[in-house]
Amino acid sequence: MIDWQRIAQLRDEIGVEDFEEVIELFLAEVEETLGALQDAPEAELEAMFHLLKGCALNLGFQGFADACLRAELAARNGDFAKVDRSAVKQIYDASRHDFLADAPA
């Protein structure tokens, strides 16, 4: 669910000092978008899932990124019955929990 190699790479790229700030910004942006996602009109879903997918990939939340990609593609194809907003949120919550429990210091 978490790509720990990507997380280590990001930490090495930006430095340990800035890593925590990046994590806080990432979590805040994702949680804000997830909150807006629940009531978003169908016309906005593809772009929202695309944004979430990009954030997830940057930080190594692979399972969450995969769920966002599936939802993004379903929204793009107009197959809104396959866009499960609550399932995406649940995957994020599980990923966040795993990350915070095992994140490198």
Rank of each mutant, 00 (worst) to 15 (best):
A75M: 02
R11C: 00
A94N: 13
E46L: 09
G54T: 05
N58G: 12
L45P: 02
E24P: 02
M1K: 10
H97N: 14
V88Q: 01
D93E: 15
L57P: 04
E13P: 03
G63W: 08
R85H: 00
G60Q: 00
A8R: 12
A87Y: 13
A40P: 03
L37H: 04
F61N: 02
F61D: 02
A65Q: 06
D3S: 02
A71D: 05
N77P: 04
W4E: 11
L10F: 05
E17H: 13
E31L: 06
A8V: 15
N77V: 00
E21D: 14
G63C: 04
V16Q: 15
A47R: 05
F99I: 02
F99Q: 00
A40E: 01
R76C: 09
R11M: 08
P104K: 08
D93C: 10
A74M: 07
G63K: 04
E44M: 14
D3M: 03
F49M: 10
F80Q: 11
N58Y: 04
A87F: 13
L27S: 11
R76V: 07
G54M: 02
A81V: 11
A28T: 08
G54W: 01
R85W: 00
K53Q: 12
K82N: 12
A8S: 14
A87R: 11
Q90T: 11
G15M: 07
L34P: 06
Y92K: 07
E13I: 12
E72P: 10
D39M: 12
W4G: 07
E46M: 09
P104R: 08
E46D: 12
G15N: 06
D84T: 00
V88C: 04
R11H: 01
C68M: 03
L51M: 07
L59M: 15
A75N: 05
L25S: 08
I2R: 03
E32S: 06
R6S: 07
I14Y: 10
H97F: 10
A40G: 00
G15L: 08
L25P: 03
Y92P: 02
A103S: 10
F64I: 04
K53T: 03
A101W: 06
I7L: 13
A36T: 09
F64W: 10
D18C: 08
L52Y: 05
E32Y: 11
G63T: 03
E72F: 05
R11E: 09
F19D: 07
E42L: 05
P104D: 03
R76H: 15
Q62T: 14
L69I: 05
C68H: 06
